[in-house]
Write a protein that binds this DNA or RNA. Structure first.
Length: 314
DNA sequence: AACCCGGGGAA
DNA sequence: TTCCCAGGGTT
């Protein structure tokens, strides 16, 4: 595996066709055999995978995705499901609002597009839970169309290979999007392959913590490696998200309790999952406002909170 | 632009 | 313990 520099890296972050070709060739040999990449995949299956993968690692998504698609193969199937079933099937993938939006998305696909996932960028972006990344990913991976797929992996690969930086900026910049767009080939099929390949390289080789440069097909043309792998320039601006004691932990415990509850849960029983009554009440109210929890009677109908029960929405 | 939103596994 | 993960929506 060549690590030493053989040819001078480009002076700019302009696209390098030889890098693209070698990354794609590497992908052809090393791509993971993921179910949403199978020949018999559906556009809906791809969309479901992208929503699940928005903030959950591949290894945890794969079994959940298989079970999900077996249970609800089409948008119409998910659209017709009880929301409580959807939230229980989402289980511990995290960020359960994604599950809610995925069902809203399924209903929008049924109502707006006759149950068929659209391939139009504007139509995709209008779907609940679908942002710039997911719309681009569905266009590329489900329909083989050219789009600028810019996720955390592609951002890191381009930051290193093209810009010589250890990691991309904490927040995506407009300049980064322009650079990524310049790297995407004009041809639809070639563009889709580059998107999948650059993402996979970031996931398997050009990883955040301990990159495997010795296994990288373009190590000899990487500006970051050529510069001696300088440290992350924006390290001082990154702050880690706290977890213990946060509302996110409280919300997770409430949702876990309600997923397993066989009957509506009285407020007193809910209190067992968190000692701070004020924080718990605030989080439960937020979950109700988010549509993840249903309060009976509905908020405002009965001012006595001690009489209320909580459950997953139907 | 900043902030909020879960959960698990690897380093 | 800390860090990372195929982001999106709201303010």
């Amino acid at each position: 595996m060549p690590v030493a520099q053989q040819t001078p890296p480009p002076a700019t972050d302009a696209p390098d066709a030889s890098v693209r070709a070698d990354v794609v060739a590497w992908f052809d040999r090393h791509a993971r055999d993921l179910p949403w990449r199978a020949a018999d995949r559906t556009a809906w299956g791809v969309l479901v995978s992208e929503v699940m993968l928005q903030q959950t690692p591949v290894v945890r998504v794969e079994p959940a995705w298989r079970a999900w698609l077996e249970r609800w193969p089409s948008p119409a199937d998910l659209a017709a499901a009880p929301t409580a079933d959807v939230l229980r099937a989402w289980d511990r993938l995290g960020y359960p609002r994604r599950a809610l939006r995925l069902q809203e998305c399924a209903r929008a696909v049924v109502e707006r597009h006759g149950g068929v996932v659209p391939d139009d960028e504007t139509a995709l972006l209008a779907l609940p839970g679908v942002g710039a990344y997911t719309a681009a990913a569905v266009r590329a991976f489900a329909f083989g169309r050219r789009s600028v797929v810019l996720d955390t992996n592609v951002r890191r690969v381009l930051a290193r290979v093209a810009a010589g930086e250890a990691l991309p900026a904490p927040a995506q910049t407009a300049a980064e999007v322009r650079r990524a767009a310049a790297w995407v080939p004009d041809d639809d099929a070639a563009a889709a392959r580059w998107s999948a390949a650059s993402m996979e390289l970031g996931a398997l080789v050009c990883t955040a913590r301990t990159p495997r440069c010795a296994a990288c097909p373009v190590a000899d043309r990487c500006r970051w490696l050529a510069a001696g792998r300088p440290a992350d320039a924006h390290a001082h601006r990154r702050r880690t998200q706290a977890w213990a004691g946060t509302d996110r932990q409280v919300r997770g415990r409430v949702m876990a309790l309600l997923r397993e509850a066989l009957a509506p849960v009285p407020h007193d029983a809910l209190a067992a999952v968190w000692p701070d009554a004020a924080q718990l009440a605030r989080c439960v109210d937020a979950l109700v406002a988010d549509g993840l929890v249903t309060r009976d009677p509905a908020p405002g109908e009965d001012p006595d909170p001690a009489a209320a029960t909580y459950r997953l929405p139907h």
